[in-house]
């Protein structure tokens, strides 16, 4: 679905040669996969995201979307239709002053007949659970609601894939939960390919696959359980691990040996209980 081959990119800001932002990066994301991308600030996550819908074209190597090279300028709008983007600041990506008009923006641009636009808008708003607010002014909505409208705006294009660049970074915990719920729903119901760039480990833990980036490279690429069990490596990259993994890790370093490939509170509690029982029966 999304493929990067030997991708190289660097920003030319007029100064002397700066370091590569993306360096010889290879990545293949399959259809229906939910991939989380982690990494500290400036590791090239957002730059990578912008390559997936042709906002940036590689300086070296190639990026393919459903087999189309993003360097192909004639097909750039087809690529953008297939890959919906959601950005960090909800205020800066909403175009219209009525929710439904904003969701209609992309289909309008694609030249779809009015009746079908209506249908797509209603469907998209229902998917993100914002149908009730279709006549509202976006600036009166909460952050999480605005971000859900932005997601509806992207899925109204009927994309194959949706790329989100830190969609929860500016939201409160409630808003974050709403957005995560929407993402999981999209994946489950529409089998949408999702690329989620995030700072939050608990969000990444819900993905099928986690990619950890550092300095324009992919350092780890595995299922969340395996990724987060590499606590020391993650910490050396300036990243956190989910709280439960952290707890298991700390218990281990204090001599209490339990597995720390745990991701949820219940899992962790079970593991600790197992340990307690084994100690008891051992006595």
């Amino acid at each position: 679905m999304l493929k990067a081959e030997k991708l190289f990119y660097s920003y030319d800001n007029g100064e002397k040669k700066i370091e590569a932002v993306l360096d010889n990066l290879n990545l293949n994301i399959k259809k229906g996969e939910f991939v989380a991308v982690l990494g500290h600030n400036g590791c090239g996550k957002s730059t990578l995201a912008k390559h997936f819908n042709g906002l940036l074209t590689p300086l070296g190597g190639n990026v393919y979307v459903s087999g189309i090279n993003t360097k192909d300028e004639d097909k750039i709008w087809e690529i953008r239709r297939q890959v919906g983007m959601v950005f960090q600041n909800p205020d800066n990506q909403i175009v219209a002053n009525v929710v439904e008009e904003d969701v209609a923006f992309a289909p309008e641009n694609l030249g779809i007949p009015s009746a079908e636009i209506r249908q797509r808008v209603d469907e998209a708003l229902k998917t993100v659970d914002m149908y009730h607010y279709r006549k509202h002014a976006p600036h009166l909505l909460s952050g999480g609601q605005k971000q859900r409208v932005a997601i509806a705006g992207a899925i109204a294009m009927r994309p194959e894939c949706i790329v989100m660049d830190e969609p929860t970074a500016m939201l409160d915990p409630m808003g974050r939960a709403e957005v995560m719920e929407t993402i999981l729903k999209l994946k489950a119901r529409e089998n949408m390919t999702v690329v989620l760039i995030t700072h939050y480990m608990d969000e990444a833990a819900q993905a099928d696959r986690v990619i950890v980036m550092d300095d324009g490279h992919i350092v780890i690429d595995d299922v969340p359980r395996k990724v987060f069990s590499q606590v020391e490596l993650l910490k050396s990259l300036g990243l956190d691990v989910p709280q439960v993994t952290e707890l298991a890790y700390e218990l281990n370093s204090s001599g209490i040996e339990i597995d720390y490939d745990v991701l949820t509170v219940t899992e962790c509690a079970d593991k600790i209980m197992d340990y307690v029982r084994s100690v008891k029966s051992g006595n």
Partner: peptide, 22 residues
């Protein structure tokens, strides 16, 4: 930011644009 978001949503100017409510 808005310009990038609009481009991502296939905005190419007025030509060939339809409307939700004609």
């Amino acid at each position: 930011d808005l310009a990038i978001a609009m481009e991502s949503r296939c905005y190419t100017g007025g030509d060939g644009r339809t409307r939700l409510r004609e």
